[in-house]
Design a protein around this nucleic acid. Sequence first.
DNA 1: ACCTGAACACCGTTCAAGT
DNA 2: ACCTGAACACCGTTCAAGT
Lengths: 179, 179
Amino acid sequence: MPLSRERIIEAALHIADTQGLRRLTMRRLGDALQVEAMAIYHHLPRGKEALMDALAEHVTAVHVEPGSTWQETAKAWCRASRELLRDHPGVLALALTKPPKGATAVAIREQTEQLTDAGLPGAAEAVRALRAFVFGSVAVEVQQSGWADPEVDEWVRRDERADVDFERGLEALLKGLET
Amino acid sequence: MPLSRERIIEAALHIADTQGLRRLTMRRLGDALQVEAMAIYHHLPRGKEALMDALAEHVTAVHVEPGSTWQETAKAWCRASRELLRDHPGVLALALTKPPKGATAVAIREQTEQLTDAGLPGAAEAVRALRAFVFGSVAVEVQQSGWADPEVDEWVRRDERADVDFERGLEALLKGLET
DNA sequence: ACCTGAACACCGTTCAAGT
DNA sequence: ACCTGAACACCGTTCAAGT
């Protein structure tokens, strides 16, 4: 299998999620791909900076099918975003912090248009509020899961509670955006 | 002026905020403090890991005086937290991502007690929701300010809008927590 | 076009040594 | 107790060279 941008990003995500972002180095990434680190520069010309950008984009560029109401569209987008971010805690810091570019910027514009087309005035403000809600929810949830926690039962209960908190908060936020 | 934990953290914050977290190195930090990098280890025995923890704590350990109602206390805490995080964009990624320990964990417990004492049932859930709101708001705001933006007028308008968005969202969230 | 090897400047950290 | 100097293993990146 030849080296490719996609394979590089996939391997990098795996390292970041399992070992932490600080352990994601070009040399280790090369090892994981059975290649010398320098080979990566051929596919990501700006090197590690380009890799970080690509990882952030990969976990923040979300697309959903338009629902029957703008509320349904917004919900689908929030749930999909949350799931994607939760699945990749290793790059969460990048996702919450890097200014949206490329595919992420496109996805934000797309979502704004979807809500506008579905009849929501002030869709740009709504999208910002929804993004803030998702970011904050995931940040707090992932932070908490990093706490030392010996009780497995506690774990499960805590996870389920994050789900209901998210849905409850989402519902309240959508109500607030209706006015 | 002798080296101290406080001076080290202050200098590190300055480097991170002005040049970015990636440029905060032990050697550069030593230079800024007019000392060899190795001297820092005497005040922060776990080295860079301890430094990162200390920076995260410094921008997330917030205390406020109790207000006349739990709503006032919560508002004061949210505003103070937002301001502190906004003042230090260089370590925002750490603040949103590192599990709360030490002074931050203490501050969270303190806030939960303040809200409980002021008569709010389920204060732990409320504190999580408030933290998520602040984190999400600041993340989106700082991300946006990282966008290329030639128009100064736009800048100002955008900043003011972030303020009213924050206050509006905070008010709505507090209403939602009353039930 | 795609990958390697050697090289360079820089990094975090240890440890013995200085005061 | 507090700081330095030298050393080590590791890092990102460049560039000429191989195929």
